[in-house]
Simulated scan of single mutants.
Amino acid sequence: MSDTIETFGHSLLQHGKEGNRIYLMKFDKRDEKVLLKYLDTLANKENYTKIVAKLPFSHKNSFKDYGYEQEAVMPSYYQRHQDCVMMSKYLTEDRAKIQNASKLEKIIQSVQKKAGEPPSALPGLWRLRRLTENDVPALAQIYQTVFQSYPFPIFDEQYLLETMADNIQYYGVFTSDGLVAVASSETDPAHLNSEMTDFAVLSEYRGYQLALHLLLELEQQMKQQGYRLLYTIARSLSYGMNSTFAKAGYSFGGTLFNNTQISGSIESMNIWHKEI
């Protein structure tokens, strides 16, 4: 079951039982006072165990007063005028416990040594391009193959079509077998930033650095379109994805612990960011 995405005033939030959390995706200062109370009310009603909020640094203290703690930061997120902070509130002791802390730290330290490593060239007949409506069935199939579950309905062709027509740009790598690797850029034109997300590579095509090729192409396209801050929220135990962003010169911004339900379990997520 996919999470619910709803508006509250001028803000946008996502919540659901699989991740057992609320994610304040877009915050509007006009909603602040009533929104903070609503998040608590919704969490209590649904027995959620975590609330995570993405908001401007200038509103950090208001959330801190409500029991939130900063877990990550993305500099110059709002049109380069203000940083973004990721604030989290844990509602049970179990949700707050950090698992595999030493392993998480080792991955971060290891991948940071790979900054600037370029990918090898794509094999001659392979092609990378932006996806269109005609590619949606193959796109949905890749997501269904790679992920057991996901916090957004990326298995649904209608959802993919709607987001493709709205604010998400999808790119893919094609071989003689068809579409074998995909990624997307979820753009925020109002704040000139974009999330590099939804990376998926078929298992038989791993080892060709396709995620890095996709990331670099997305980055080039975003730069041409005037975006200034790129970021990702990557699975913290995925050495490959964290390495991909480190190789592309992204900076580590912090970890959202026990944050996101992917492929059947709740995982901690690392923030990586880059100004372009």
Score class of each variant (00 low, 15 high):
Gln14Trp: 09
Val52Lys: 05
Lys106Gln: 15
Arg129Pro: 01
Ile108Asn: 13
Thr49Arg: 04
Phe8Lys: 00
Asp28His: 13
Glu186Asn: 12
Val85Pro: 03
Asp40Ser: 15
Asn259Cys: 10
Pro56Thr: 09
Gly67His: 06
Leu12Pro: 01
Gly240Asn: 15
Asp83Leu: 02
Asp166Glu: 14
Phe257Asn: 13
Leu42Ile: 01
Ala115Met: 12
Leu160Glu: 01
Gln99Cys: 07
Lys33Pro: 01
Glu18Trp: 07
Tyr66Ile: 02
Leu55Ser: 02
Ile142Thr: 11
Met74Ala: 10
Gln82Ile: 09
Ser243Gly: 08
Leu139Ile: 14
Tyr170Asp: 02
Met86Trp: 12
Ser76Gln: 07
Asp156Phe: 05
Phe152Ile: 08
Tyr23Ser: 10
Gly240Pro: 07
Val34Gly: 00
Met25Ile: 13
Lys45Phe: 10
Tyr143Gly: 00
Ser149Thr: 12
Ile142Ala: 06
Tyr231Val: 04
Gln109Pro: 01
Asp166Gly: 00
Ser120Gly: 13
Asp166Arg: 14
Gln209Lys: 06
Asn61Thr: 15
Thr7Lys: 14
Tyr143Gln: 01
Leu122Asn: 01
Tyr171Ser: 09
Leu13Arg: 02
Met87Val: 05
Lys274Asp: 10
Ile51Gly: 00
Lys54Gly: 08
Ser236Gln: 15
Asp188Arg: 05
Leu212Asn: 11
Glu186Pro: 00
Ile233Trp: 09
Gln82Asp: 07
Gln112Tyr: 03
Glu93His: 08
Ala246Met: 02
Asn270Met: 13
Pro137Trp: 11
Ala43Ile: 09
Leu55Asn: 01
Ile22His: 08
His59Met: 10
Thr197Tyr: 12
Leu139Cys: 11
Asn167Ile: 05
Gly249His: 09
Gly172Trp: 02
Ala138Trp: 00
Leu215Gln: 01
Glu217Leu: 08
Leu229Phe: 11
Met196Thr: 10
Trp272Phe: 15
Glu275Asn: 14
Met241His: 03
Thr260Leu: 11
Pro151Ala: 06
